[in-house]
Simulated scan of single mutants.
Amino acid sequence: MNVEIKEISATNFLFLPHTGVDNLESTFNKLIAWGTPLQLLEDENSKIGRIFHDSFTNTAPNKVRMSIGFKTSASIEQDSLISKTTIPKHKAIAGSFTISLEEFQNAWSQLYQWMHKNGHKPSYVAPYEIYNNDYRQHSEQKCDVTLYIPIF
Rank of each mutant, 00 (worst) to 15 (best):
T72I: 00
K71T: 00
H53V: 07
T36L: 13
N29T: 10
Q39D: 11
V3E: 08
E42R: 06
N23Q: 15
F52L: 10
S100C: 06
L111S: 08
V125W: 05
K121V: 14
I5D: 06
P17H: 15
I32S: 03
V64G: 06
I99Q: 08
H90A: 03
F15P: 00
E4I: 14
T86Y: 00
S55F: 03
T11K: 12
Y135A: 06
T72D: 01
E4N: 14
L101R: 08
E44V: 12
G20C: 07
I149C: 07
N133V: 01
S67C: 01
Q78G: 10
G20P: 07
F56V: 06
A60H: 15
P88L: 04
N2W: 08
V125R: 09
L16N: 12
E129Y: 04
G49W: 08
K6W: 11
V3A: 05
L111I: 11
L38V: 03
I149P: 03
P37C: 04
E102D: 15
F104P: 02
I151H: 06
E129I: 01
R136M: 02
A10D: 02
W34K: 02
F104W: 03
P37T: 05
F52Y: 15
K91M: 03
H53C: 12
T19G: 11
Y112C: 00
N23R: 15
Y148V: 08
H53T: 09
S75H: 15
F56N: 08
C143K: 00
N2Y: 14
Q39W: 03
